[in-house]
């Protein structure tokens, strides 16, 4: 996979055009694989069912008719339109980056664009919801190329900047869902784990397969200890002066507790949960998403 290193976030970041960025990632990924990822979303034969009156005659498998003298309709899995919801967190905390890395929001929207690009290309209906305290932007699911364009445009225009209420936003989105589908959430999940799990529970209730991606900067897991930090909360503006030892100890412990809380909820709800750090190459991250999706299917 070394030839894909040019698809690392640091190399992709200078590319401003999200469409180009997503295309580059997806095409690059496909080029690196010997097997088409489309199969991953499965345009494979599923089963035969008897033809019913009123259906389009184009659906009849004529070869089967020739052999059996009965009319059958051939069903493919990918023919069932997938309703996928991409939820991206655009709270202020997602704007965090350290040591020159791509910030979390930028990373998340790149990943979201790539996923949308793949889904639209296989004619799945993709919806986009950007949220902070609430769901501020929502594009209903469509499977057209125009939808992809719209999604990319929205993602490009969205900036991170408000406080987070991740749990409440997920819950809010879940209320509006009618059909079974896939929901992919990209967020730093800096909210009360109980609220988040509550939101996930609501999604699961609405028959959603949920893929929860915790996008996190490596420095959000641990601090270098040889420094003193004058910290300012990007969402609340609260400031704090901490030495490296104390900051590191409390951050490590806090993140571990937070992760445990969410992970336990996900396990209970059978929600796929993955942590993606912003220094991870996009291709890796995308593959993890696709493999998760295959498992779901």
């Amino acid at each position: 996979m070394s030839h894909l290193s040019f698809l690392d976030p640091e190399h992709v970041a200078p590319i401003r055009n999200l469409n180009l960025r997503a295309k580059l990632i997806v095409e690059g990924m496909i080029a690196g694989l010997h097997k088409s990822p489309y199969h991953g979303f499965s345009a494979e034969f599923s089963e035969y069912r008897p033809y019913q009156t009123g259906e389009s005659a184009r659906a009849i498998d004529w070869r089967k008719y020739a052999k059996t003298d009965r009319s059958y309709v051939r069903l493919f899995e990918d023919e069932t339109n997938l309703f996928a919801h991409l939820m991206i967190d655009k709270s202020a905390s997602m704007g965090f980056s350290a040591e020159g890395r791509m910030n979390k929001f930028d990373y998340a929207r790149t990943l979201a664009a790539s996923i949308a690009w793949i889904l639209i290309r296989q004619r799945d209906a993709v919806a986009l919801a950007a949220f902070d305290e609430r769901v501020s932007t929502y594009l209903p699911p469509r499977s057209t190329n125009l939808q992809l364009k719209n999604i990319l445009t929205v993602l490009e225009r969205t900036v991170a900047g408000a406080p987070t209420r991740c749990g409440a936003s997920i819950d809010r989105l879940a209320r509006g869902l009618r059909r079974r589908g896939l929901t992919i959430i990209l967020s730093d999940l800096f909210d009360d784990p109980r609220d988040i799990v509550q939101g996930l529970r609501h999604l699961r209730f609405k028959r959603q397969d949920v893929l929860l991606l915790w996008v996190i900067d490596p420095q959000e897991r641990d601090f270098p200890r040889h420094r003193t930090y004058h910290l300012r909360d990007m969402e609340t503006g609260r400031t704090l002066l901490l030495d490296g030892h104390t900051a590191s100890r409390f951050l490590r412990d806090g993140v571990a507790r937070h992760y445990s809380g969410i992970e336990a909820g996900c396990r209970e709800l059978k929600v796929d949960f993955a942590v993606i750090e912003t220094d991870e190459p996009f291709v890796h991250a995308l593959l993890r998403v696709l493999q998760t999706r295959r498992r779901l299917c």
Partner: peptide, 25 residues
């Protein structure tokens, strides 16, 4: 250690006990 001013994503993990520990440090 030198002081680094840092805009951090969240301070939710640093409660009063962190402040107290920092003071004691």
């Amino acid at each position: 250690p030198r002081t680094l001013r840092l805009m951090f994503s969240t301070l939710r993990f640093f409660d009063e006990s962190a402040v107290a520990a920092n003071r004691s440090n």
